[in-house]
Design a protein around this nucleic acid. Sequence first.
DNA 1: CTGAATTTGTGCGTATGTATC
DNA 2: AGATACATACGCACAAATTCA
Lengths: 234, 234
Amino acid sequence: MSKYEMIYSAILKQIEDGQLKEGDKIPSETELMKEFDASRGTVRKAVDLLQERGFVQKIHGKGMFVLRKKNIEFHLGGIVSFKEVYEGLNGDIVTTVVEMKQVAARRPLTKLLNIKGNAKVDLIKRVRNIEGENVILDINYFVSEIVPGLTKEIAESSIYEYIEKTLGLHISYAHRVIEAQPCTEEDRKYLDLNGTDHVIVVKNFTHLYDGRQFEYTESRHRLDKFYFSDVARR
Amino acid sequence: MSKYEMIYSAILKQIEDGQLKEGDKIPSETELMKEFDASRGTVRKAVDLLQERGFVQKIHGKGMFVLRKKNIEFHLGGIVSFKEVYEGLNGDIVTTVVEMKQVAARRPLTKLLNIKGNAKVDLIKRVRNIEGENVILDINYFVSEIVPGLTKEIAESSIYEYIEKTLGLHISYAHRVIEAQPCTEEDRKYLDLNGTDHVIVVKNFTHLYDGRQFEYTESRHRLDKFYFSDVARR
DNA sequence: CTGAATTTGTGCGTATGTATC
DNA sequence: AGATACATACGCACAAATTCA
């Protein structure tokens, strides 16, 4: 881990552990330089990261203050977001693979994944059951050439861990779209819809560090279980 | 404008004008140093900003490449997001103030705005009409002590411009929450709901540079007109 | 395959500007 | 007015990833 990441983590830990509470002033940059035996540039890189991610707020001439303790979580891979994740989930999340096969890409998919026709794609459909109700249907498409060797076991645990740890690929960014759609036959088949006739769809176009797109995913959430939270700056 | 902002804008303009197209390699940091007569740190600050905002992707040892031309727009103030904004909106957006009054804060509101009871609050309800349909109901609450002098005229044009330009306040960040809710009586009264029984609610907790919260807003969107897009990194 | 050149990543030091108290 | 704290900018050195002769 680099030095600025160490400083970032150390300060973040103090916030999470409650040694630094909301509204507290964080030591000045010169003090942090001494504390961590680092240059000002390095300290600034660390605290800029803290600010970007919404933990602190720097004020010119005054100092730097703690905004919030808990991370505004987003999940680049896997489950995107739902209420229980934020509310400290009491019950369990059970993931079931309901369909899994390799297909040759056809028209809508070739565009969504930015690949040529007939390129091999791994299709995975998973249902997320929370506290006894099926509330999320995840439909993943992975480019087989980039992500080979997917199995049912991997799909049931963590595909992202497999991609990063086992395959050694570096995931970089995802373009996300959130919108509502009328329920499909498939939604009705797999989800406990509770009388609702729309779902919230989170689309993910996920890319590697080198820019290649390796995934397109639709997370279809039951309306009343959907929740999204973030911090926008400037 | 600072030097790194100049460099940021200059490169962004080249991307928007099409001189740098998607996939193109951007000149190396040393070349940009010469081009803009700047130090490496300044150039890096500019291109790091471009990367954060999703325009380019830097790859260690290779270079820096254009990802996309169009900004993934978010709107910190005012209208949060809806389909037509992204699709280049053909028709007009008409904003109508349907209610406006000053009230003394009561229980749910004191918590949402983080203020004391009986503190004065300006309540504004506005309907957004797009292509002949009322599809968004915005309910804004402003802390009167921080944002004084709001009028119907300001509410009909741009409240944020008034806050920043006229009052000279610096807006810094907003905590956003997106979720679905069943329609209220008010939704039914003001919106053309088209048979849907839920709305998508975007909640905004907006703060000044000094950390004070000055606004709480609910944007209530008709399901089929809602659209949200962003880029998540790492 | 090796090594050099290029390019981005990290870290240090210094100076000066600007806002707050 | 002076002290403090963050903001911008410059320069240098070395590390790590990639490319290519």
